[in-house]
Nucleic acid binder design. Structure first.
Length: 260
DNA sequence: AAGGATATCAACCGCATGATA
DNA sequence: GTATCATGCGGTTGATATCCT
């Protein structure tokens, strides 16, 4: 929905009126004003919207606040494992095209995804002392972390399914298939991280059956834990005890292991 | 309990692009 | 064709929260 024609007759701008623009965190009052105004008049024409709504903010600021925070369909809370997997997959194909990636994660904003990437993924790349865009790091994601993440999602799906059967009163819901996207691929596959259909097609719309929004453990930590899946490197088992120290593993170790 | 380190996230900035006059 | 304005995007920053010693 967009504004058709200006609902505000005054052409005066904040600067014209000697109004100093506010910056920094939004107050509850400002949120309310913006929300009411957008609900009534629709999105768009942000500069005039800011003016007409009486907000001493730039149009840019209003737009950002609405898109990233006030929009009714904005989804808050932890990034689910499914979403994490999707982000990784999409980033491998699109790069830092955050808004494009966000289009595949309904309710998530480009800002949120960007923050996730920078704070979680880049952090781990740094700890591994390799560039986040390097082939090394992408291979680690592809061959170790993502398969483990898929495994975790599968396990969560199975356990929730079992729980539903145990609870006879609970209505049955169809199980969401976990797409086998991140199966180890031939080492010479270079076009994409994934040789099978993109995860975006299999997870979009199925995220509501989450493995758990409340999981505070980030997927990298999860993915590096030992599992019967057989991806774990022995060095990784020290993670719980040694943390992300300087020498708990080396990229070369992993790399060698993948060549076996 | 205090203080420093680190993580997280909201918000801003500059630039690119498209629409319109 | 050009100037101006609005919008959108990606990068960066700063405030706050949380963790650790």
């Amino acid at each position: 929905m967009e504004i058709h024609g200006s609902p505000c007759s005054s052409a005066a701008r904040p600067s014209d009126e000697g109004m100093d623009l506010r910056r920094g965190p939004w107050t509850a009052d400002e949120d309310l004003i913006l929300m009411n105004y957008v609900t009534t008049h629709g999105e768009g024409r942000w500069n005039s919207l800011a003016r007409c709504a009486g907000l001493r903010r730039t149009g840019k600021s209003c737009r950002l606040r609405w898109l990233n925070y006030l929009r009714p369909d904005v989804r808050r809370g932890n990034i689910t494992p499914e979403e994490q997997l999707l982000i990784l997959e999409l980033h491998s194909r699109l790069g830092n095209r955050w808004s494009k990636i966000a289009q595949h994660l309904p309710g998530r904003t480009d800002n949120e995804i960007k923050n996730y990437w920078r704070t979680r993924v880049q952090k781990h790349a740094k700890q591994l002392r390799c560039d986040v865009n390097s082939k090394q790091f992408k291979d680690i994601m592809r061959y170790i972390w993502m398969p483990r993440l898929v495994e975790r999602i599968r396990e969560a799906s199975i356990s929730s399914f079992a729980a539903m059967h145990q609870n006879a009163a609970a209505p049955l819901a169809p199980m969401q298939p976990v797409h086998p996207i991140a199966q180890p691929a031939p080492a010479n596959t270079t076009d994409s991280l994934f040789s099978s259909p993109p995860v975006s097609e299999s997870f979009t719309g199925s995220r509501e059956t989450q493995a758990g929004d409340d999981t505070a453990v980030d997927w990298m930590q999860e993915a590096l834990l030992p599992s019967p899946g057989g991806y774990a490197c022995p060095e990784l088992l020290d993670l719980d005890h040694g943390g992300w120290g300087e020498s708990w593993w080396s990229v070369d170790d992993i790399w060698l292991q993948q060549q076996l």
